[in-house]
Nucleic acid binder design. Structure first.
Lengths: 253, 253
DNA sequence: CTGCATGGTGTAATTGGTACACAATTGTAA
DNA sequence: TTACAATTGTGTACCAATTACACCATGCAG
C-alpha cells in the first residue's frame, strides 16, 4: 500500500521514465498437477484480481519491457513470450487501482490516462517461478484455470484472447518445452494438451502423433511410484523443437 | 510539400489531437490482373516509398483509427482489417519524412518522437479503391508484389510480417471475399491463392478442396470471351463464409 | 495369485491429399 | 469447315494421415 506521497513520487517518476499511454499486460501460463494455471495479482486491501503488467521505458524495445516485467513477477530470466494482440479501446483505460483514484489531481496521476495495452502471453515452468507482487498488489499467485476470480478492467478479454491464440497455435506449433519439466511422461504431456484444449484426446493416437513430430527423445528410464505400470520418460529434442517452431508442424497449402 | 509554417501548425495540432508515441501502419493488399498489389505512398520530392499510416485520436478506438486512415487513402468505408503485430523497437522511430528534419526544433516536432506502430493488414477489392496521397506524399498507388520499391524505415519488415501472417491464415481461414469481385471463376480464385503463396497449385485438387469448404455458390452463367472453354462463375456464400471465418476451416486437434 | 487400472504397441477402416487421365468447350488457323 | 491448341470440368487410382479399436505388459492392492 502506497501513501499519497509515495504515489505522487511514483507518478512523477513514471511520467518521466515510461512511454505514456502504453502498457503491457501478460498472461503467464503454467502447468502443475494436471492443471493449467495463470499468474495473477490481487490488489492491496481489496478483492481485485488482475494480470501482471507494466510499462515501457522510453528507450526500451517492447519485447524487452515484457521480459523485464515478467522477471520482476517470476524471477525467471529467459521466458517464452509472445505478443498476441493490442487492446486499444479508450474505455479500457481506468486507473489500475481504484483505491488511488482521487488521491492525486488528474493531471499528475500517471495511471489516469488512456492506455493502449500490448498483450503478451508467456509459457513457463511452474517450478521455476517465484511469484512476487508489485507495488500495487499484496498477492502474486497461481490461479487455476477452472477456478478463476473475476478480472479487473478488460483483463478477462485479454486472458481469453491469449487462451484462444494458444489453442490456435497448438495446430501449427509445438508446445510444452516451456511448460513441462525437463523429463516427463507421455500421459503428462497429453494432460497438458487436454487442459489447453479442454477436451479429451485418444491416448494412443496422441502418442503416435507426438512421436511423429520428431521433437521428443525417449529416455531409458521410467517413472516409478504410481500404482500402475511405469511410463517411459521423455525429453524434448531442443534442436528439432526449435526447427518445428520456425517451420510449423503442418505445411498447410 | 508543406512549408515550415504548415509543418509547425501540423505538429502543434497533432500533438494535441493524437496519442503521442503511437502510430498505425497498414498493408493494403489488392488483386488485379492475376497480380497481388500493395498500396504505397511516395514522399514529396524524393524517391522514398512507404506504407499508408497515421495516428490515433485521443479518444478513438485503435480499430476505428485504422478504418479512418484507410478511408482517407482508399475512399472505402468498410474495409476488412486485421491487426497483426506491433512494431516497437526504439530504433524504428525516425522522422517520417527526412525532408522535414531540422525545419523545426526537436521538442516541437511531432514526428521526431519514438513511435510504437500497430500493424494492420487490409484486403480490398482493387476496383473500389481510389488511391489518395496524404499531406506528406505526392503519389499513392498500387505496387506489384513482384516489383516493389525499397521501403522507408522498417516498412519492409512490416510488409513481410503482414504477408507471412496472411499466408499462415490461409491455412485456417477462408480468403477472397474481400479481394475478388462479386463473381469470379475458379481459375481466377486459384490465381489469387497462387499469388499469395507464390507457388503453383494443382487445378483439379484446388477446385475440389475449395468446393469442399462449402463457401462457394456455383452460378449458372459462364465467363465468355476468353479464347478457350468458358469457365463457370462462382460467388461466395456469405453466410457460410462468415461462419468459416469464425470457426476456422480445419479443426486441428 | 488374481483383479484392475494404467501404459505400450499394433491394425483395420476411414478420411483426406496427391497425381494423374480423359472428355468437353471455345476460338483460331489451315 | 475442320483440325488444333489451350483451357476447363470431372473422375479415379494411389498414398498418407487420422480415427477407432483390440490386445498385451506392468505394477500395486487385496
Amino acid at each position: 500500500m502506497l501513501t499519497k506521497q509515495q504515489l505522487e513520487q511514483y507518478c512523477v517518476e513514471a511520467t518521466q521514465t515510461y512511454l505514456n499511454h502504453i502498457s503491457i499486460d501478460c498472461v503467464v501460463f503454467g502447468f502443475h498437477e494436471g492443471q493449467m494455471k495463470v499468474l495473477m495479482l490481487k490488489a492491496n486491501m481489496e478483492e481485485a484480481w488482475y494480470l501482471p503488467g507494466g510499462f515501457v521505458l522510453k528507450q526500451e524495445p517492447i519485447d524487452n519491457a515484457a521480459d523485464r516485467i515478467l522477471k520482476e513477477r517470476t524471477g525467471i530470466d529467459e521466458i517464452f513470450l509472445q505478443q498476441f494482440h493490442v487492446f486499444g479501446h479508450p474505455d479500457r483505460s481506468k486507473i489500475h487501482n481504484e483505491m488511488y483514484k482521487g488521491m492525486l489531481p488528474d493531471e499528475l496521476n500517471f495511471f489516469n490516462k488512456r492506455f493502449i495495452s500490448i498483450g503478451y502471453y508467456a509459457l513457463v515452468d511452474f517450478f521455476n517461478v517465484n511469484p512476487a507482487p508489485d507495488d500495487f498488489s499484496e498477492i502474486c499467485t497461481w490461479r487455476d484455470l477452472n477456478d478463476l476470480p473475476e478480472f479487473e478492467l478488460d483483463h478477462e478479454l485479454i486472458f481469453k484472447t491469449a487462451l484462444d491464440t494458444l489453442r490456435l497455435q497448438l495446430n501449427y506449433q509445438p508446445i510444452g518445452y516451456n511448460l513441462m519439466p525437463k523429463e516427463f511422461t507421455m500421459p503428462e504431456l497429453q494432460k497438458l494438451y487436454e487442459t489447453i484444449l479442454d477436451k479429451k484426446l485418444d491416448r494412443r493416437n496422441f502418442q503416435r502423433r507426438m512421436l511423429g513430430f520428431g521433437i521428443l527423445n525417449k529416455l531409458e528410464t521410467t517413472r516409478k511410484g504410481g500404482a500402475h505400470k511405469a511410463p517411459y520418460l521423455y525429453s524434448f529434442d531442443l534442436e528439432n523443437y526449435q526447427a518445428a517452431l520456425k517451420q510449423g508442424l503442418k505445411s498447410g497449402w
